[in-house]
Amino acid sequence: MNLGDLVVRRSYGGDIAFRIEELQQDHAILKGTEFRLLADSPLKDLVKAPSVLVSEKIQEAQERANESLSSFSRQRAEQSLRHQAQISGGRELSKEISYFEVPGKVLHLDGDPNYLQKSLLVYEQLRVPAEGHYVRESGMADALYRLLPQVQPDIVVITGHDGVLKHRQNRDLHSLSSYKNSQNFVAAILAARRYDRNLDSLTIVAGACQSHFEALLQSGANFASSPGRILIHALDPVYVAAKASFTSIRETINMNDVLGNTISGSQGVGGIESRGSYRMGLPRLHDLSTLKVTPSAM
């Protein structure tokens, strides 16, 4: 086995494809190719992933991701039509009174640099203003103390890798000590809430695979994973943040739409009723390079 090899685990029936991130004597550190899962495994339990298996799973995940993107795009088109009708009052809309958009700004902290890059590409595709930083889960609370006043986001995404620890004796799903990084996500949420306690002015999306859903919500997250302690797709937090970014400040985020846009569904992501961050402005912003202006000042 070599770094970067695609592998599956015999003991789990080869259910998930991983990439070898690090080799440690007779063990390997693994990262999921499509799911936010960090695992370790004895080398003897690993086999190189059959190319057919990997391609099928990647294709399935990509298809589900494309469905989510298509659903989001349809909802955005419907939103645009509603805004046009609202402004025009049924009359033909002129360019002079056409509107402009101010979607909510996202600050995305990710414990995985590869998933961070994938996430930023999706934000760009969905036209969500976003700033991303790769930060190890243990350093996210300190990073937020520094970044929140600088970025002043409407939405914070706190994600990376997590999971229920396999070898801990007397594993208790109520205890944070049974999870790999949930305690770090809780610390980061608390740091963000010290900056802004208002659940509607700062929307927090937190968690990764099998995270302690209840603890994250109780700490101040609006949306979190994972109610069913299942694996979540790498892009699920992005879709939730995008929905918050383009939901009007006059409306609450439609929970059914949120769950419908995520790949993992209601067992992977949940949350509480929260207002959106999107604002509409009038009139449409001008292209200043083409604007003809007569100077009026010395």
Rank of each mutant, 00 (worst) to 15 (best):
E96C: 04
R168D: 01
N2K: 15
F213L: 00
E67T: 06
G14Q: 10
P153V: 05
S225Q: 01
Q125P: 01
A85T: 01
L173K: 11
Q79I: 03
A130C: 08
V293N: 08
A206G: 06
D15R: 04
L3A: 03
S248M: 01
V157S: 11
V293E: 12
Y115M: 00
I249Q: 10
V186G: 10
N170G: 12
L38V: 10
L53P: 01
L148Y: 02
D26Y: 06
H212Y: 14
S266G: 10
S94L: 07
L30H: 13
L37W: 09
N256D: 15
N254L: 01
G13C: 08
S68M: 02
L148T: 05
P237K: 09
G13N: 06
L165D: 08
K243W: 06
S55F: 06
V102F: 03
S264V: 05
I272Q: 14
R19C: 05
Q62M: 13
L6A: 13
H167L: 13
D236Y: 10
A85L: 12
E22C: 05
V156G: 09
E137H: 04
L121D: 00
L6G: 03
S55C: 09
R193W: 07
L38K: 14
T262M: 04
G228P: 00
L69Q: 10
R229K: 11
R136Q: 10
K118A: 13
Q62D: 14
Y99V: 08
L144I: 03
S219R: 02
A141M: 04
E251L: 02
S80P: 00
G276M: 05
F246V: 04
Q117A: 02
I97C: 07
Y179P: 04
I230R: 13
Q210H: 04
T262W: 08
I155R: 01
I20V: 15
R284W: 00
A234C: 04
Q169R: 14
V293F: 13
M280I: 15
G160E: 14
S11V: 04
P50A: 15
L69R: 09
L6C: 13
E34K: 07
S178M: 08
V186H: 14
I263P: 09
E131K: 07
E56Y: 13
N170V: 06
G89F: 09
M280F: 12
T247F: 01
S68Y: 01
Y278T: 04
Y99C: 04
E96P: 00
D110S: 14
H27W: 14
G160D: 12
T33F: 11
H233R: 07
G4L: 06
A241C: 07
I158R: 01
M255G: 00
A244D: 02
E131Q: 11
P103D: 04
S70Y: 04
S277T: 14
R74G: 01
D26F: 03
S51I: 09
A297I: 15
L176R: 05
S70K: 08
G163H: 12
L69C: 08
L109D: 08
N261C: 01
D200C: 02
I263W: 13
A61F: 11
G268D: 12
L217R: 03
Y99H: 11
V157L: 09
A241G: 07
P227F: 01
H27G: 00
A242W: 08
S248L: 12
D45C: 07
V157H: 09
